[in-house]
Amino acid sequence: MKKSILVFSLLGQLVFAQEKTTISKEEVKRIEVELSSDKMQGRKIFTPGIDSASVFIEKEFSKIGLSYYQELTSYRQGFLVKKKQANNVIGILPGKSKSNEFVVFSAHYDHLGMKNSGKDKVYNGANDDASGVTAVIALAQYFKQLDQNERTIIFVAFTGEEVGGFGSKYFSQDINPDNVVAMFNIEMIGTESKWGKNSAYITGFEKSNFGEILQLNLKGSLFSFNPDPYPSQQLFYRSDNARLAALGVPAHTISTSKMDSEENYHQLSDEVFTLDLDNMSEIIKSIAISSISIVKGIDTPSRVEKL
């Protein structure tokens, strides 16, 4: 009984603090518009466009005041892909009392690049996955301001997802998976889900109690997290969560993408004007609220069965 009262008291304090901490639609729009702009040239790996996107994310992490990851001397985690240089962008908020336990918020910042000709040549990737990276940056701002993370939070923008998941592969090989308590991978949250506004789904929902924890933390709100409605597409193994999930981490992707009818998916038309930025802002807020007991060290999701 005493433990229950303590947890209830802690959650009550967290709710009060969260009410004073905001994720603004204006900031979400600013970040999203910049990441999906034509000047990023479609953010294809090994191009000047992807480097421009990396520089932008690094500047955002610096403004927020994130620390460098492990032994890095910048926000860039460099590695080679087919003898070419590539990099993830990583920043951290060190944990207060459980610094060796990690919670990861991630998204991929690469996309498809440009066509050689045509009136519209840029694959802007506003939803795929500038929306996810926008969420990661907004969540970094949020948790820095909240300043209540007992566990270390790692914010990472992966490269190379569109060409084989090279960024998440390197990251997963460079970190001890036993130290990763949970991974919130965010992929395509700019459009309404099949249930409409204020809803999203979690891939691999049945593989751990990660989703149940998020649902419980949102109880009484207007927002709902649901199991993946597209199991035949095996989305759990098609995004950057898959590498750590294979190692036993409760690593799941949060998305709203209607994978059976998303007309702008991998199209030139995936531009910012097609997104619902109000709903997207609410999704990011709900990710923040639903994750707080994990970030705070109150809840620990069950592990995923290793592959």
Rank of each mutant, 00 (worst) to 15 (best):
K3A: 13
S9T: 13
S9I: 12
S9H: 00
L10Y: 07
L10A: 12
L11W: 07
L11E: 12
L14V: 00
L14Q: 07
Q18N: 11
T21D: 01
K25Q: 13
E26P: 00
V28P: 12
K29Q: 12
R30P: 06
L35M: 10
D51H: 13
A53T: 12
I57T: 09
L66P: 05
S67I: 05
Y68W: 04
Y69W: 15
L72M: 07
L72P: 04
L80A: 10
L80N: 14
K84V: 06
N87Y: 12
V89F: 07
S97C: 04
K98Y: 10
S99Y: 06
S99T: 05
N100A: 03
S106K: 01
S106Y: 04
A107P: 15
A107D: 06
D110M: 05
H111M: 02
M114C: 03
G118S: 05
D120W: 01
D120I: 11
K121G: 00
G125N: 08
V133I: 15
A138G: 10
Q141E: 15
K144F: 03
Q148L: 14
E150A: 13
E150D: 15
R151E: 10
I154S: 09
I154A: 08
F155L: 10
T159N: 11
G160R: 14
V163W: 05
G164S: 03
F166K: 14
K169P: 00
I175H: 02
N176E: 13
P177S: 06
D178F: 05
F184G: 07
N185C: 10
T191I: 09
K194H: 11
K194Y: 11
G196F: 03
T203S: 12
G204L: 09
F205N: 15
S208V: 07
G211S: 09
G211I: 12
L218F: 07
S224V: 13
N226F: 03
Y230A: 08
Y230I: 02
Y237G: 11
D240M: 09
L244P: 08
L247K: 13
G248V: 04
G248H: 00
G248C: 07
H252T: 03
S257W: 06
M259P: 11
S261M: 08
E262W: 13
Y265D: 02
Q267H: 02
S269C: 02
D270S: 01
D270C: 09
L275R: 03
N279C: 02
E282G: 14
S286A: 15
S286V: 04
I287P: 05
I289A: 13
S290Q: 06
S290Y: 04
V295Y: 01
G297S: 09
P301Y: 05
S302V: 03
V304D: 02
V304H: 00
